[in-house]
Simulated scan of single mutants.
Amino acid sequence: MAGSADLLATWEAGLGEAPAGRALLLHRTARPDLDAAALPRLPVGERESDLFALRRALFGERMQVRLGCTACGEDMEFDLDAGEFAENLAGHGSAAPGRGAGNCATSHDGPAEARRPIAALPAERLVRVSEGGWEVEFRLPGVADLTAAARAADPRGALIARCLVSAEYAGEVRPADALPAPVQHRIAEAVEAADPGADVTLNVACPECGQATRAELDIASYLWTELDAWARDVLLDVHLLATAYGWSEPEILALSPLRRRYYLELCADV
């Protein structure tokens, strides 16, 4: 687990980044065991799982979520259990919300890895589809694939072209643009089933009007907001303790949160 100094460095680096860059920085913190260049090629659901694990390690199990009802405009606040949520996603592609929420479901239209020989791809990152005489192998998309496809005139076609490993019809190899619509639909279904945590959607019943509001749970954005608030609090602590005791930032950050809080209470009593 990254220490306070490392987390502050991640926060500082992310201040000038767009949301995608911040998500990558958070993923690097969550997966220091992997080369940074490999992270955007992981299946989206794997990244989301990594970020949930980081969030739990940094800030605990309880997640407070606030949404506005799309029907009546009422603010809705409820809790999610991050551990249970992540476990449900990993287990069967759905997640149970906390108090005050309705239900959750997941769907995927995710990203993937750069084109590689099939033998080099882990089996769990491939889906195989047989439909109408077609035999197709497709790799689970990663963030890099989604980002590149979004820039194309035909995002769906671009994503298929990037992630297609092989396609055969009647024993003949065929290109991505030859895939008929029913085969593309089956690929989308297979990807969603294989990577259910790639897109998490909350379906929350409003306690005022009873109507359901659907909203995406963007764990990267949620976690960044928490990290930003934490970092600003820590820097305030550093300022106060440095002013009171003359300690350096590394010395203050080396203190446990409990000892740091105790010294701050002593400063307030003076």
Rank of each mutant, 00 (worst) to 15 (best):
G45H: 04
G45Y: 03
G45I: 04
G45W: 02
G45R: 05
E46T: 13
E46P: 02
R47S: 12
R47G: 07
R47Q: 13
R47I: 03
R47A: 10
R47F: 04
E48A: 09
E48Y: 00
S49T: 14
S49R: 13
S49H: 09
S49D: 14
S49A: 15
D50P: 07
D50Q: 11
L51C: 07
L51P: 02
L51T: 02
F52Y: 14
F52T: 00
A53G: 06
A53L: 08
A53K: 11
L54W: 02
L54H: 06
R55H: 07
R55A: 13
R55S: 14
R55P: 01
R55T: 02
R56I: 14
R56L: 13
R56W: 03
A57W: 01
A57L: 15
A57Y: 05
A57R: 14
L58D: 06
F59W: 07
F59D: 08
F59M: 13
F59Y: 13
F59L: 13
F59R: 11
F59V: 10
G60I: 07
G60R: 07
G60P: 01
G60H: 06
G60L: 10
E61M: 05
R62Y: 00
R62I: 11
R62N: 04
R62D: 10
R62C: 03
R62H: 06
M63Q: 05
M63T: 01
Q64L: 15
Q64S: 15
Q64N: 11
V65K: 07
V65E: 12
V65Q: 10
V65R: 14
R66C: 11
R66S: 15
L67M: 09
L67P: 08
L67Y: 00
L67K: 06
G68M: 01
G68N: 11
G68C: 03
G68H: 01
G68E: 04
G68Y: 00
G68P: 00
C69K: 08
C69N: 09
C69S: 08
C69W: 04
C69I: 00
T70M: 09
T70I: 07
A71W: 03
A71G: 12
A71Q: 10
C72D: 11
C72F: 03
G73A: 03
G73Y: 00
G73K: 05
E74C: 07
E74I: 00
